[in-house]
Amino acid sequence: MPQRLYNCETLVCLKLFQVTLADAEFVSLPSLKTMYLEYIEFPNEATFETLVLCSPVLECLKVVVASDNEKVFRVHSRSLKRLTFERVSPFLFESAGVVIDAPRLSFLTIKDNVSKSFLIHNFESNGILEMSLVGFVRLVEIDDEFFDDIYEEGVLLRRSNIHKFLHGISMAKSMKISRGTFKIMCHYSKLEPLPQFRNMSYLDITLCLHDFKWLPAFLESFPNLEYLALVMVCDDRKDDDVLREDVDQVSFSSVPECLLSSLEFVDLTAPVQYDVEMKLVKYLLKNSAVLEKLILRLASYNSRRDYMLKKLLKIPRASSKCKVVIL
C-alpha cells in the first residue's frame, strides 16, 4: 500500500484486502468513517493500533484476520459505533487476544475461536451494545465436537478471562449466542454467577437439545428480557434413545424473573421427534405472566402437528392474552 494513503484528508471509506502494510510512522485520516481490513499483513501491532487511533471520526470498522496471525489487536476509538472482528481457525492453537476500548460502540460482532482473551473496557453507563457472539473466543480451546467434561476443564482454565469478558459486555441491549457460547456460559455459571444483563431486552440462543435443561437458570441473568428467540438443534453425537432420555429427565424447578414480569415474545424453532418442544412450551406458557405471543417453528411438517395443537389447547396459560402460533 502506498505510504501517502496514511495521510489523506479527504478519504472517507477505506477497504483493503490481502494488502501488506508498511510501518506507519505518521497517520492522519481526519475524514475516515469506514474501514475494512481483511487478511492484511501488519508489520507490527502498533501499525493497526495507530490506524484506528488516528482516524478520529471512524464509525465502522471490520477486521478479518488470518487464522495464523498471533498479534494482539487493540481497538482504541472515541468515535467507533460498529465493530466486526473475525479470526477463525480449523486448528487448535491460540493467540494473544483482542482489547476494545470504544465507549460509543453500539454494535459488535465477534467470530473468534483463536484469541485466549477478549477484553472490553470503558463502556459508558448509558451505552448500548448489541452482541452477536458466533462461536465465542476460544477461551476454552475447544469446539462443539468435544464433550462436556472438556468444556468444564477449559472454562476452569480460562475462568478469569471469561469473567472479564462477560462483565465487559454486561451493558448489552441485545445478544445472539451460538450453542458453544451457551454451553461455555452455563459451565462458567457453576463456578460463579453470571453478571446481571439488566439492559438486555432481546436474546437469541442456539442450543443443543440436551442442554435446554440449563435454560431457566441461565435466564435468571436477564431480568428485563422482552424477546427470546430459541433455536434447538440435535446433537449428532447422541442417538435418539439417549436424547429422549435426556429430555425425560429434565425438570424445571425455578422460574426466572423475566418470565414473571417482562417476557412478551418467544420464537422457538425445534425438531419434532423428541417432545422437547412441548415440554419447553408448556413451561413457558404456565409461567410467563405477560407473554403476548409464542411462535413454535417445527423443523418439518408432519402428522404430529395436529396432535401438538390439541395438546397446546389444554395447557394452562399464565397470560390470558397470549397467542400461540405453529409454523
Results as ranks from 00 to 15, higher is better:
L263Y: 12
I120G: 12
F197R: 01
Y301Q: 09
Q273G: 14
A46V: 03
D235K: 07
A102P: 08
P56G: 01
C208Y: 10
I184K: 00
F218P: 11
D211W: 08
K282H: 07
K164M: 13
P316L: 08
L11V: 03
P56F: 07
L285A: 04
E59L: 07
N122I: 05
L327K: 10
S262K: 09
S132M: 14
R297E: 11
A66T: 04
S201W: 08
D239S: 04
L32K: 01
P103F: 08
T50C: 12
K279G: 07
S132A: 10
V52M: 11
L313Y: 13
E41D: 15
P103Q: 02
V250D: 00
G135Y: 01
A22C: 07
I205A: 05
L228V: 06
S95C: 11
E41W: 13
L166E: 00
T269W: 11
D112T: 06
K81C: 07
P216V: 01
E192A: 05
T109A: 10
I150K: 15
M131Q: 11
L51E: 04
P216N: 01
T109Y: 14
K282W: 04
L285T: 04
L263Q: 05
Y202W: 11
R305W: 12
R244W: 09
S115E: 01
E145T: 06
L16H: 06
F91P: 00
P43Q: 01
D143T: 14
P316I: 05
E49H: 05
K71D: 10
F147Y: 15
S95D: 15
F91I: 10
H210N: 14
H210L: 12
K71E: 11
S115F: 01
I205H: 07
Q18V: 05
K190Q: 05
L313K: 15
P103H: 02
E141T: 09
R244E: 05
K173F: 04
